[in-house]
Design a protein around this nucleic acid. Structure first.
Lengths: 328, 328
DNA sequence: CGAAAGAATGTAAGCCTTTTCATTTTTGCT
DNA sequence: AGCAAAAATGAAAAGGCTTACATTCTTTCG
């Protein structure tokens, strides 16, 4: 149906080898020849068949960003940002990016298998067995927002601890010592990381962390608001609440509003992710800035390094920042 | 490197044709044979090479969702939702989905070309020439959130007019007759559609639309807030403002807050899209609900219909709804 | 039990490139 | 002009699978 290299060869009067070279290695053919070939190709609307090419070369020059719906979803601005950044970076490279979802990681692996892609960026909590599966298939892997101790895989993560330190430090500066945390049930890795960071940082500042001041909730505003409501209705209510992410923090703001608590006068609220909602709520939300852009870029870079046989750091930690706004 | 059909053939003692059939047409081989083959495959970690298969069959069974960064981005919750829905629907089908971005449509077309995918769902404002390009390559196309009069392409869009009618009707019920609109510069299609719908609906209700009450702004809270500030500072300020989407509406809320205008008592605000921010702002935002989920599903369904040679409606309009919340 | 029909399997060609190696043409120099 | 070296080109094999067609094995039933 579509023109092939043979058609072009016939029309232009050169061999198929030369046609092939004209497209994949233009400076290896003479100017005049190249022109003849391009002309013929133009007439026939020919363009190389990527599949046949992949077949012959035994490589596709494709990489994938794999998202597992169970762990991460693009509906979460956090992941959407990473995804966006990966796209942006990949566009400028000589490898094509495909984004692929799957119901579960097993299916995702299947999708990526069979040399359809040479490398994958795994977003969300990958499992060890699936990573080995990839490695056995000689598919390069890098992890974003996740790490896998004991595995020989580059990963790029945000400095959750550093971010938490900034947040808590800032609250202390504002005179808040009685700090609670509501950890939204986001991806297991992030949730765990932030939770541990909180405990550690509080410990380092010599603050006690009342177990009742650490709560878990579903990652919805409503759930967060409910949880915050409980926390704030108690006599010994905290002076500040850290949300596991901005949605949770928005929920806290909501709860405060319902209780008539003024923010930041009577309660300080800090979120995580520095997403666009921070600027939409009232007061605007102080939030730990996660550099999703950088995470995505580095993810792509690491994968390219791996594929190019360059050496490549195992763990890359991207610094976090703090955007101070009206809620503290 | 990886096992091929030949290896399996050798180990299991059957011909490569039988191995092939075992994988792509299991019930065309005898039970005993199938088992032998699967066993051998298991041992060799064999799985069919998708590229070779595509080469032989002259088809990939892949479809793509193409996003052009210029027009649509996954960072916009609206598109993220559609994207998510497309993924969800595609997972359950027998065709694989790849999501692909490109700096511009030309590049996107290149990506999809060459029979790497059999069909594409185009998100955002596609251009006529690119669509013809696809058609010449025999790649099926469906449009989501866009239509292309005069072209033979199924498209699925939201009923923006119906949504607008609900919104304006609701405001009138609340006694607001002096209604302004701030159209965020979102995708050209959506922006235009909502703008036109506004004019038309206002006309139908016999309301005059002061040209000064229709504004354009960048799709950021700040820009929207600025624009709203101007609108609301005037002596003859409107009694209600329609935001072109929720982000814009959130900006309006912000402006109202700055001016000390109480919402909804002194100003009603309605957004578009019914995104998650609606529940986060104070007061919660009344918004026109766009059924992104359905749009995505139908997009996939239409494409499948097209590829299966079934007939397929040209234009599908998905009804919009109205979620009334505190801002009106 | 044997023939005919049907099911299972095998053979080999084809899908469209790339790439190695051999061959031809061009170039650069003396 | 003539020769070696370099550049351009061509012939052919390879890449892993599917599938039409031919062949062999099983059933079925008179």
């Amino acid at each position: 149906m579509n023109a092939t290299i043979y058609d072009v060869s016939r029309l232009s009067g050169v061999s198929i080898a030369t046609v092939s070279r004209t497209f994949s290695n233009p400076d290896r053919v003479r100017d005049a020849t190249r022109q003849k070939v391009f002309e013929a190709a133009e007439i026939l609307h020919y363009s190389p068949n990527a599949i046949a090419r992949a077949m012959a070369r035994q490589r596709t020059d494709k990489i994938a960003f794999l998202i597992c719906k169970r762990d991460a979803t693009i509906l979460d601005e956090f992941y959407a940002r990473i995804c966006e950044s990966i796209m942006r970076r990949a566009i400028r490279s000589d490898r094509q990016l495909v984004i692929s979802t799957a119901a579960d990681w097993a299916q995702a692996a299947g999708t990526a298998q069979n040399k359809q892609v040479e490398g994958v960026i795994l977003g969300g909590s990958a499992q060890a067995d699936m990573v080995s599966e990839f490695q056995r298939k000689h598919i390069a892997v890098v992890l974003v927002n996740h790490r896998m101790p004991g595995f020989d895989i580059p990963c790029v993560v945000s400095d959750e601890y550093g971010g938490m330190r900034l947040a808590v430090g800032h609250l202390l500066q504002r005179g808040r010592r009685d700090i609670a945390m509501i950890a939204g049930r986001i991806s297991p890795y992030i949730t765990g990381e932030r939770y541990n960071a909180f405990l550690r940082v509080m410990g380092e500042y010599g603050l006690e962390t009342d177990a009742r001041h650490i709560r878990m909730c579903d990652p919805t505003v409503e759930s967060a608001a409910q949880t915050a409501l409980e926390l704030l209705s108690r006599k010994d209510r905290p002076a500040a609440i850290l949300g596991g992410n901005d949605v949770v923090a928005a929920g806290v703001l909501k709860a405060a509003h319902r209780l008539g608590l003024r923010v930041p006068e009577e309660l300080s609220v800090v979120g995580f992710d520095d997403s666009t909602v921070c600027g939409m709520v009232e007061p605007e939300l102080t939030s730990v800035h996660i550099d999703c852009r950088r995470i995505g870029e580095l993810g792509v870079d690491r994968l390219h390094a791996l594929l190019n046989g360059e050496d490549c750091p195992q763990v890359t930690v991207v610094p976090a920042g703090l955007r101070v706004r009206g809620s503290t």
